[in-house]
Design a protein around this nucleic acid. Structure first.
Lengths: 344, 344
DNA sequence: ATGAAAGCGCTAACAC
DNA sequence: GTGTTAGCGCTTTCAT
């Protein structure tokens, strides 16, 4: 026995019209301009719709009508809580404007990101929010050249003329360093990922600024990537030296996953006490790093508000006959926890 | 100065045909059956496409062709890491089958869930994966009655005839209880949410079974919901009693957020030592509960594999002339951490 | 208030 | 190998 008896071809508007004894156009009016239709007719049509189980074909609809009411959000990874928060904000704001939000994850693959850019382009969405990966310019320009607005989130490229929503990563690094300094740290270390990662560069800038304002030294450790594994490598390489330093050392990892890895390896080293000898913190508020053996301080990005703002900019660009591209920068907030604060 | 000079209406296939000096059908062939077209012609057409910046209209395409190659996933909350893992698995498997995955979050709102069900129904997606909220039957039946397959994830309803992918929540509770028992707990408490939550009921069942097998008593505490706030309430109400118990007490919270709340309140009580007096664990592996002051044990659902399996079932149902509905049940795994294991 | 008819941009079947 | 053509299901005039 098969599940559904037999998938009947879905009824069309014409079928409904016939069933209700009216013309095709009238059915369309019932759906789109109910007030133009007499009460009695409307009821008859609505009943036919219900009886036939009629579902509007959105494809035909937007073909004829020339537009959709969806916008799309493409993020590199839903495992990063920033993008989850962002999607929530975007979703809420989209609804405010009567738009539906379609979410896609590019799974950290540029090819996949391009596929979705094209998918949403071909689907004639009203526009897109994109949290781009590195080297996304070609894809973005392609979509934009088709007249479809794109708002960039969490990444800015001066070569791309687009509305953009950013968090203040310089402030992020600055806040992190200031926090560590306030706990009595005498020496700062910034653990940076690859130089090409813009947010990482900016955070380092902020941390450097705070350090020099305070007259404290900030040294730099580089890693190939920004994963927990990289963090563990850094920890085992430098941990002993940090613990042996004269004063208390403060470590700022450029991402939370990095911080997680550092913590993991330091905690495994006998004789290293956190946060007494070494204080460690992250700086991107990624809740994926939750498995930490010790809850650590970090700086939290304003993800939800970024989503809201991004949709606002997009809606403005969609509506605006004359549109001026803008960049909105939002501030992160510090989150203080055990890895820097001392014991309960 | 406005951003884009002037959104030119996007060129159609006919425009490309004219530009390339060929017929409309030939352009279609270049796109869909390149081997049918002579090399020279194909190149000419491809150049015209590039020059005009032509983008296939997916709506017209699926109208004429009668189908899409997208499937959709609707989840109640991307903040729950189970659904993130699920989307990753589904995404990977969808790609294997040449399908694109569209993700939507219903933001814990039944109305929003219904909206997306209809949106994807109207968009003629090939089918949907749904992690349903309570009382979703009407919406599901509606979509299914239109001949569009739906695979249920993480929730089963005997009244709905659908393929379903579940985790074994009875095993979940069983594993949790066994783990606590293995750490020397003499008395178990299960903190349950509302009775209507199926996974919670099942976990309780499993925990009860493990307890009776071990000849240990399991008592029950009920809460109105399963949030951290509920957990804090439970903690402050029962914490003192638990700590005062003769043996070591093991607490199983039916969700990780609940466990988080319990931990928060217990840690704030002087004289209660975790995990020495009271061992606490969660049972749904939700990484949103990462802010815990103490990393806690939990049971991790097989989210990724659930996503993969769900897509497989969906694809089978899409393809299958005769399709037999199936339910796949996957096993969770225990995750042991400090809140039950004792000190480092 | 309702009906009739012209596309929207494309695919696929068929003819050349 | 390429051109022609009939829809796909709908929205929107324009008549009536």
């Amino acid at each position: 026995m098969s599940g559904t008896p037999k998938p009947p071809p879905q009824p069309s508007m014409q079928d409904v019209a016939t069933a209700a004894g009216v013309a095709l156009g009238t059915v369309s009016n019932v759906l789109n301009h109910p007030q133009r239709v007499a009460e009695a007719t409307r009821l008859r049509v609505q009943q036919a719709i219900a009886e036939l189980g009629f579902v509007r074909n959105a494809n035909a609809r937007s073909l004829a009508g020339g537009s959709t009411d969806s916008i799309a959000l493409i993020v590199p990874d839903l495992g990063n809580s920033l993008f989850v928060d962002l999607s929530k904000g975007a979703q809420a704001e989209a609804r405010e404007h009567g738009l539906s939000l379609l979410i896609a994850s590019s799974a950290d693959s540029l090819a996949e990101q391009d596929r979705y850019l094209d998918l949403f382009d071909e689907a004639r969405t009203q526009g897109m929010l994109l949290a781009p990966m590195h080297d996304s310019r070609a894809g973005i320009e392609r979509v934009r050249s088709h007249g479809r607005p794109v708002v960039l989130v969490n990444y800015s490229d001066p070569l791309i003329e687009c509305c953009t929503v950013l968090m203040d990563n310089v402030l992020d690094g600055y806040l992190a360093a200031r926090h560590l300094l306030s706990t009595g740290v005498r020496e700062l270390v910034f653990v940076a990922g690859p130089e090409r990662l813009q947010p990482v560069r900016d955070r380092r800038l902020g941390a450097t600024r705070a350090a020099s304002e305070a007259g404290v030294e900030l040294s730099l450790v580089r890693t190939d990537a920004v994963t927990a594994a990289d963090g563990r490598a850094v920890g085992s390489e430098h941990g002993a030296a940090w613990a042996a330093a004269a004063g208390r050392v403060g470590i700022i990892a450029s991402t939370d996953l990095l911080a997680l890895g550092i913590l993991q390896s330091l905690l495994a080293m006998p004789g290293v006490s956190i946060p007494t000898d070494v204080a460690v913190m992250g700086s991107d508020g990624n809740r994926s790093a939750w498995e930490s053996p010790l809850p650590f301080s970090t700086v939290e990005p304003p993800g939800y508000r970024m989503g809201v703002e991004a949709v606002r900019l997009l809606v403005e660009e969609i509506a605006g006959a004359s549109h001026e591209h803008r960049t909105t920068v939002l501030s992160p907030t510090i989150l203080e926890r055990e890895s820097t604060l001392g014991h309960r």
